[in-house]
């Protein structure tokens, strides 16, 4: 068992990064790894409420974020600095997450075995 941290750093629907990051997160969790997620920069937009990906021919993988608790993925960190840059508020985010300082996220990166950035 390893501690894997998956970082979402790009916004959804413009490319496949978010979707392929989530696929890896769920798969890793089902393989009994200790998976944590970090959302930063435009990656936090993956967690915004009221998205309609089908409008642009994209699959609604956003709904699948709701399955994370079923896979025991409980550590979900959202970068406060990124929230501020995009002027988002905590109630804009659809999941139970921990809003975290840059320092706390840096410490988390040190704590895990591997970090995969998407």
């Amino acid at each position: 068992m390893k501690k894997l941290c998956i970082v979402f750093s790009q916004g959804p629907h413009g490319n496949a990064k978010g979707r392929e990051a989530l696929d890896l997160a769920l798969l890793s969790a089902s393989f009994e790894q200790e998976v944590s997620l970090v959302f930063t920069d435009e990656g936090i937009l993956n967690l915004l409420k009221h998205q309609s990906p089908e409008t642009v021919g994209a699959k609604d993988y956003i709904a699948t974020f709701g399955a994370l608790p079923l896979y025991d993925v409980e550590t979900i960190l959202v970068c406060e600095a990124a929230m501020e840059e995009l002027e988002l508020a905590e109630h804009d985010i659809k999941l139970e997450v921990q809003f975290s300082s840059s320092q706390a996220i840096a410490e988390h990166f040190n704590h895990v075995d591997e970090v995969l950035v998407f």
Partner: peptide
């Protein structure tokens, strides 16, 4: 890319 900016945000 924002890669360098993000790296500097979290670097020790």
């Amino acid at each position: 890319s924002a890669a360098l900016k993000l790296c500097l945000r979290y670097i020790n």
